[in-house]
C-alpha cells in the first residue's frame, strides 16, 4: 500500500509515484524504499526525517536523478527520470536540480568562486556569466570576501553557504539538501536552513531537506517521516 503524501495540486515540480528501490537480487537483496508517493510543489520546502538506514538518502538519490527506482516513477517537471539515459540524467542534474550535501561536497582544489562557477560549466553556461553569477550569489549569501579561498580555509558554515550558492547557480527549479546542518553548530545550522528556506520560498523552487534535526524540520512547510523504507505522514 502506498504512503499517500501525494498532493495532486498544481505546481508540482517533483513527484514520486510508487517508488521502490531494491539493491541486489535474490537472497542478498535489500529493499531500501517501498512504494513511496510524494509530491513537492513550487515554493514548498519539504522535510524528510528518519533514523539512519531508513532509506532517506536512497529516496533523495531517486528524487535527484542519481538513482533510478526499481519500481515506480520519479518525475521532475513532468519528465520521467527513469525514461532518460545516463547522459540526459546528468544534464537534468546539471540544469534543473541543485544539490547541497552533508559536508558541503566542495572540490578541495577549487576556490569558493570556482566551486560555484563549475556547475555553470557543466550546464553549458558561458564562463564569464557563470563567474558573475557566482560572485552575486556569494555576495547574497555573505561569503563574497571568501571567494578566492580554498574550502580548507573556510569554516563549516561558510562551506555550506558556498555549497548553497553552487546549488543555486543555474537557478534550478528543484533544490535537494542532504543533512545540510549535520556538521554545523546550532546557530550556523539555523542560518543555513534560513538560507535554504529563502531560496525555496523566494525562488519558487521545490525544496527537499533530509535531516535528523527537529529544529530544521520544523522550518519546513511539510514534514514526512521515513522508517524501514516507508513514508509515514506527519501532522
Amino acid at each position: 500500500m502506498s504512503d499517500h503524501l501525494d498532493d495532486p495540486g498544481g505546481g508540482a515540480l517533483v513527484r514520486a509515484e510508487g517508488c521502490t528501490k531494491i539493491y541486489g537480487d535474490g537472497h542478498t537483496s535489500v529493499t531500501a524504499v517501498v512504494d513511496a508517493d510524494l509530491t513537492i510543489r513550487a515554493g514548498e520546502l519539504f522535510a524528510l526525517v528518519g533514523p539512519s538506514g531508513s532509506g532517506k538518502s536512497t529516496l533523495l538519490s531517486m528524487l535527484g536523478a542519481l538513482l533510478t527506482p526499481t519500481e515506480g516513477h520519479v518525475r521532475i517537471e513532468d519528465v520521467d527520470v527513469g525514461s532518460l539515459g545516463e547522459r540526459k540524467r546528468t544534464e537534468l542534474r546539471a540544469r534543473r536540480i541543485g544539490f547541497v550535501f552533508q559536508a558541503a561536497g566542495l572540490v578541495p582544489f577549487l576556490t569558493a568562486e570556482e566551486n560555484v562557477a563549475a556547475v555553470g560549466a557543466f550546464a553549458g553556461m558561458p564562463r564569464q556569466a557563470a563567474r558573475q553569477r557566482a560572485q552575486v550569489l556569494l555576495d547574497e549569501l555573505g561569503v563574497a570576501d571568501r571567494a578566492t579561498h580554498l574550502p580548507a580555509a573556510l569554516s563549516g558554515g561558510e562551506r555550506q553557504r558556498v555549497a548553497i550558492a553552487r546549488a543555486l547557480l543555474v537557478d534550478p527549479p528543484v533544490l535537494l539538501a542532504d543533512e545540510p546542518t549535520a556538521h554545523l553548530d546550532a546557530d550556523r545550522g539555523q542560518q543555513v536552513v534560513e538560507l535554504l528556506g529563502a531560496a525555496v520560498h523566494d525562488g519558487g523552487r521545490a525544496g527537499l531537506v533530509v535531516t535528523h534535526d527537529p529544529g530544521v524540520a520544523a522550518r519546513a512547510d511539510r514534514i514526512v517521516r521515513i522508517a524501514d523504507g516507508r513514508l509515514i505522514p506527519t501532522a
Binding site: 546528468t90 542534474r93 546539471a94 550535501f101 561536497g105 572540490v107 556547475v119 550546464a123
Partner: peptide, 16 residues
C-alpha cells in the same frame, strides 16, 4: 573518489 562522485552528482559528465 568522493569529490569525483560529487562532481558527477552535480552534473559533470564522465567525459568531463
Amino acid at each position: 573518489q568522493p569529490v569525483l562522485s560529487t562532481l558527477r552528482a552535480i552534473g559533470a559528465t564522465p567525459t568531463t
